[in-house]
């Protein structure tokens, strides 16, 4: 009874998660628990395993060993159900450049099996402030606009969980500010959000909890309220260097 209650508390629970590519161990036993509605930011240098962890959580790849459950569902048992509850925003837009903004969102919405997809697509495009460019080809969009449309793609099926993999990459200051405001809106909608980034300045404001991933292991995990933002950079460097 206690176990099942404990499982339901966490939207994401990973235990001793490992992932190897040949002889290379990208993840060397990650333990991660993210609560319902929590914004968790995982910092780490290049090659720490952040993208691999995001791919595992997004069910794009299977773990070599360890346990992973999303919303209490084991990834090995019902992967399609898990996919319907997750939205992913990456530095890559995962959009078709030769389709319009509306056609893109409609296409992905159809793959999520959304009823009334035309209305829903218009609604999310409006939500990200691109309604005036709805019928323009994505290849004519700036990087910032593409990233906003990526948000629309990721939330079209109203996922409970959002995974953000280096979402600020390539955004200019203005684009990053708009994107940050969007994230804060998404946080208010009680979504569980996991963001990975190598940029310390991003994410600290929004996060409820922060972690540091280095060489395939989480070497630091603490609530943001107990983390000193001024000294976090030094802490990060020392944790990465000593891992």
């Amino acid at each position: 009874m206690n176990n099942s209650l404990e499982k339901q508390d966490f939207d994401i629970k990973a235990e001793d998660l490992k992932k190897s590519y040949g002889n290379f161990e990208a993840l060397r036993g990650v333990d991660l628990s993210v609560k319902n509605g929590e914004f968790y930011t995982l910092f780490g240098p290049n090659g720490a395993g952040k993208t691999t962890l995001t791919k595992l959580l997004a069910t794009l790849t299977d773990p070599t060993s360890g346990k992973l459950s999303v919303l209490g569902i084991d990834v090995k048992k019902d992967v399609q159900k898990i996919r319907s509850t997750i939205g992913v925003i990456s530095h890559d837009p995962y959009l078709y450049e030769t389709l319009t903004a509306f056609e893109n969102i409609k296409f992905f919405g159809e793959l999520y099996g959304i009823a009334d997809i035309n209305e829903r697509a218009q609604s999310v495009i409006k939500q990200v402030g691109l309604e005036s460019r709805s019928n323009d080809l994505v290849r004519t969009f700036s990087r910032g606009m593409k990233q906003r449309l990526t948000v629309a793609r990721a939330i079209v099926h109203e996922p409970k969980i959002l995974l953000l993999d280096e979402p600020y990459t390539g955004l200019d200051q203005h684009g990053a500010q708009i994107f940050g405001e969007m994230l804060s809106q998404l946080k208010k909608q009680n979504r569980t959000i996991i963001m990975t980034t190598h940029n310390i300045d991003e994410g600290l404001d929004l996060s409820d909890r922060v972690g540091i991933l280095s060489k395939g292991k989480i070497v630091y995990d603490s609530p943001t309220s107990q983390t000193d933002p001024i000294n976090f950079k030094d802490l990060y460097i020392s944790k990465v260097e000593n891992s």
């Binding site: 794009l60 399609q80 996919r83 997750i86 990456s90 890559d92 995962y94 078709y96 450049e97 793959l111």
Partner: peptide
């Protein structure tokens, strides 16, 4: 191009 295939693989299809 733009890794759109990943977007497709993320869906429950």
């Amino acid at each position: 191009e733009g890794n759109a295939i990943i977007g497709m693989l993320l869906t429950p299809t």
